[in-house]
Amino acid sequence: MLRFFGQPKYADKELFGYELFLREKVAGNWQFPKSFSQIHGHEFSQLLAATLALMSTDIQLVSINLDREQFIEEAYICELGRVQEAYPQIQVVVELTEHDGKVTNRQLIDAAARYVQSRIWICLDDVGTGDNQISFVQQIDPYVSEYKFALQNFHGKKDYATSVSPYLQFWREQAALHHKFFAIEGFENAVDLKIAQNYHADIKQGYYFGRPHEIAAQSTLLVADH
């Protein structure tokens, strides 16, 4: 059995959306699916639609992760477009992950254009990591709405606070220059909050604000007390 688990997204103190992660129930426990490639676009989109139907009216946006192969698949492009059309009250965002793939930039840009035509937003996940480096970012720029910076990629590194700041500064500036929303994920504690506070993230996400949980029928808007 597959479900979407949602990790809360905050804009300032407002819980306004979720990043959705697929989980599979195995022997009574929820875990990462053994193989993402076996999940077809149609099944994925049906599950997404069922999840959106459970969302409260205060949820304005949900994001889902697609790797590069999934991103250019016709099934995903068409089916996700249908889901967005069926649920216009919630903005669907596709987060393009930074994992290496045998996909050309041209294919990615063409696919991005089709998602945007279906009114779906594109977010570049883990900017500055993997394939989501500045050169690709500049090429796909017209179709992207959001840059997402991952603090967790710097956790555990020596001199974490000083090493992460220049990257945050750079991507914050890039987002401002190109009129994109800037999201920071990977907040795990108050130290992360302090480091990131000068970089004015539009969207914040991380274990500090909430872990992914099963999406059930919801009723009230949650406002963070942090």
Partner: peptide, 15 residues
């Protein structure tokens, strides 16, 4: 106060 999506909406509308 504290509701960030309206600030984001403002930028979208401005653009």
């Amino acid at each position: 106060a504290g509701m960030g999506t309206s600030q984001m909406g403002r930028r979208i509308f401005e653009m």
